[in-house]
Design a protein around this nucleic acid. Sequence first.
DNA 1: TAAGATACGATACACTGTATCATTTAGTTG
DNA 2: CAACTAAATGATACAGTGTATCGTATCTTA
Lengths: 153, 153
Amino acid sequence: MVNSKNILSSVEEKCVERGIRLTPRRRQVLDVLVQEEAALSAYEIAQRCNADSDNPMPAMSVYRILDFLQEQQFVHRLETANKYISCSHLSCAHEHLQPQFLICNSCRRVEEIDLSSSAVAAMASAASAAGFASISSQLEVNGLCDRCVHANA
Amino acid sequence: MVNSKNILSSVEEKCVERGIRLTPRRRQVLDVLVQEEAALSAYEIAQRCNADSDNPMPAMSVYRILDFLQEQQFVHRLETANKYISCSHLSCAHEHLQPQFLICNSCRRVEEIDLSSSAVAAMASAASAAGFASISSQLEVNGLCDRCVHANA
DNA sequence: TAAGATACGATACACTGTATCATTTAGTTG
DNA sequence: CAACTAAATGATACAGTGTATCGTATCTTA
């Protein structure tokens, strides 16, 4: 179980700094994502919000709130899966660059990683060889996490 | 203009080898994709098929045919865009590994590339550091191609 | 030719995301 | 505090995408 209270209060501070509002609705959506190791679709998020609250969360609001949370880099969107996951640096002070993700094909959990600069450089050089100038990329790499490998062994 | 006739007859041979059928419908879909430098959605493919034929191509058929063409590795699916593109190795004899793509954010054309083994190794090591065992990845990297960079300069 | 497998046509439908309206809430200013 | 403005939310309708399913046609093989 994640200690979402600390994380959320850290987010709260950032919102104050930036002069934006972490409304109850936004906090509710973010909380759902922080609790979750796997990525969730917008409609899955709405379901979880409705599970532990009598005030129904419309899917429309989820999309709007996700847009907001993405702009603030509090959540990331996995483009290959059309799902959302909370940023792993919510409690950190430093800004981070383009994120990269490892997605387990078995348990669906997601790890946010930082690629080494050599790997990025190798990709840039492959791109330039193929006639592409700049690249800016959010890599999403599928695989099997250690837990699942051992579980199936 | 691509010489789709040669490419398609090469595909035809492969189908004979594999004991599968390249029906007129399948050929029609593949032809549309071979002509196109950019990736197309299923519905866009259906539209192009209907543009130069009076026999309407239902979207349903396009999906089925795309499934087939993907299984045979004649086309690839860009997961970030939900679009399809013909394999760049249709005339080659050799099998190829997991493909990687560069996608131009301006003109939308797509290049299929082979990453250097060093880049792949660097990624594998980053993955293992994050607790992921095997990775198998179709990388889709967005950027700007040289043509568009020069055009906007 | 008959039987089975494969491919295709057609309809309905579920899911996802957007457009657009009204309504409420929060923040600001006189 | 009252009035105004902007931001956030509620609610409805709808477009686009992909799937399920059933029936029909075509090909293959005995």
